[in-house]
């Protein structure tokens, strides 16, 4: 089974001691509700700005307001993949189990944001471009990113031995991260070769300040949400992995008594 990582055996000081699942579990439990509350508040503010303060777009009318969900979701989906690749690299280099757990805890959230971006994009595309989907470079690379997420999740779930699942997942996350820019540029080139830019996504009209503010607040809310959900998922994964240890028994008993 899994061998204890070096971080545990050496008992390091300072922030590194949270690399041990046993130390991180309570910390995540303390932090997660704060992030969740921040996410809720920011979402409320962001949606208020988006729906009531921001002016109606003179070209697209009210439909543009999907931007307040669409753009933050697209940003998060790309960012989370990079963060996953970062934790995968940290895990492979430092041999810390928690990094792999973090990597796997982030994946479903990233996939969710990726799907959300595609879905809202399709709903936005229909009234503005007259079609749900164009094989535009951005849309296509976003779709491929979703497939990369699916691949990562499927691989880590299919392997039963957690140690192997961790490492195999880390390798595919890194391979994917190397390929993301290649995919993006190849798709962009392919698209420009095939058809003229019938729909230009890059020529964004200059944005009203309130629109930008709403979008940024929503992006922050997405950050907070992603962090909160990832922390909760990390806690669940830690409990699952460490269920044979003594401290998990103690923690669960204490939590049961508190209830």
């Amino acid at each position: 089974m899994t061998t204890p990582s070096r971080a545990v055996t050496r008992n390091p000081e300072g922030i590194l001691r949270f690399a041990a699942p046993q130390q991180f579990y309570p910390l995540a439990g303390t932090l997660a509700p704060w992030f969740a509350q921040a996410a809720a508040v920011l979402t409320a503010i962001g949606l208020y700005i988006g729906f009531f303060v921001a002016p109606t777009d003179f070209q697209q009318g009210e439909v543009y307001r999907v931007i307040f969900i669409h753009v933050p979701a697209a940003w998060m989906s790309m960012l989370i993949y990079l963060v996953m690749a970062f934790w995968a690299a940290v895990g492979l280099v430092l041999n810390t189990r928690l990094s792999f757990i973090m990597c796997q805890a982030l994946a479903p959230t990233g996939a969710m944001f990726c799907f959300l971006a595609l879905w809202t994009g399709a709903l936005w595309g229909k009234p503005t471009w007259g079609t749900y989907w164009v094989w535009d470079a951005r849309l296509t690379s976003q779709l491929l990113l979703l497939f990369l997420y699916f691949g990562f999740i499927a691989l880590t779930r299919a392997i039963e031995d957690p140690r192997r699942a961790d490492r195999a997942g880390a390798i595919i996350a890194l391979v994917g991260a190397v390929n993301v820019p290649i995919i993006y540029f190849s798709v962009q080139w392919w698209n420009t070769l095939h058809q003229g830019a019938s729909v230009s996504l890059t020529k964004a009209p200059s944005m009203a300040t309130t629109m930008l503010a709403g979008m940024l607040v929503m992006a922050l809310a997405a950050w907070m949400y992603a962090i909160a959900v990832a922390l909760w998922r990390v806690r669940a994964l830690i409990l699952e992995r460490e269920r044979h240890t003594e401290w998990v028994g103690e923690v669960l008993e204490a939590e049961g008594r508190a209830r």
């Binding site: 497939f147 691949g151 499927a154 691989l155 391979v175 390929n179 995919i183 190849s186």
Partner: peptide, 18 residues
């Protein structure tokens, strides 16, 4: 790995696109 064949396709096909 169980279900290896389909899993392999899912992992590899997005990387084949370029």
């Amino acid at each position: 790995v169980r279900g290896g064949g389909m899993l392999l396709a899912l992992l590899v096909l997005p990387l084949y696109v370029p």
